[in-house]
Design a protein around this nucleic acid. Sequence first.
DNA 1: CCTTATAGTTCAACTATAGAACTATTCTAG
DNA 2: CTAGAATAGTTCTATAGTTGAACTATAAGG
Lengths: 155, 155
Amino acid sequence: MDKSTLINIIRRYEQAHFTIERRLNALFRDMMPEELTVDQFLTIRYIRHNARTTSSELADAFCVGKSSITAIITRLVDKGLIARVPAPEDRRVICLTLTSEGERLSETLEEKMQELIGDCIRHFDAEEGRQFIETYEKLAQVLLQSPAGEENGSS
Amino acid sequence: MDKSTLINIIRRYEQAHFTIERRLNALFRDMMPEELTVDQFLTIRYIRHNARTTSSELADAFCVGKSSITAIITRLVDKGLIARVPAPEDRRVICLTLTSEGERLSETLEEKMQELIGDCIRHFDAEEGRQFIETYEKLAQVLLQSPAGEENGSS
DNA sequence: CCTTATAGTTCAACTATAGAACTATTCTAG
DNA sequence: CTAGAATAGTTCTATAGTTGAACTATAAGG
């Protein structure tokens, strides 16, 4: 890719990314029930798909410090949506699991969120969708390999 | 697009979107100088490219309430990066402009951010980049037309 | 005029976040 | 085996962003 093409795409990416990020987040916020924030939902969704995860794993996945996760987890435990389960094999570790209510709520909201995203992307034809998602996943891969949020910088 | 293809893409979009959003945000955060947050940078960048904007316009663009914008603006004024300029033609309106320091800082950071995004997307060849950005912009268009954050819901 | 709408601010309450200090474990090297 | 380092998680303080309601000031329109 030559330089001017790259610059053009960067500029357009910034613009589109901003719009999508802000708008989608607003739609998600409106979709949430009274008692749950978007971040809290993303947390229970993560736990639902990654059974017996831990605070440290969540901190890595969400690219935030562990104390942020403690705060979110505490709120979710208070709401009765998740439980802290000490791990028998390593007594420093606390495994996180959904309660049945958390399970039910997460499933319901995941469906609603999928509908919402579906409404956005059903406009594209299958080939366009396939090409788009493949590049988008490549982008995610690039970011997974770059040192985002790693505590041990290379310097 | 048939149903199973759509469902497959939705699932993959959710996953990739989460990764990209979180990782990119962490990279942006690390890039920021001590005295500025990502949201504050996005605000001065918006003002730089939309001269004499207002709180209401920012609230629309960022999909948040006006009181959030007031808070951010106040912090940026305190840091000497932007100025509140009363509009002569309508005395309810306050126009926002960058100070020369805000201008300089925003420009510097925009360049750094473009480099960072460039590092992520230079992996793609020109054709893939072109196709991706076109679909991505279509998605942004869909979201601009949907009622995200609108106060006057259709119901 | 008087009412209604609009632009922006203030305030209280809450969530998310960072970072440092801390406790409790586990690992590791001598 | 034990002392020190590393790891998992929490607590605490401070700050930023957010909402929503109440408020001020101005403008527009009957």
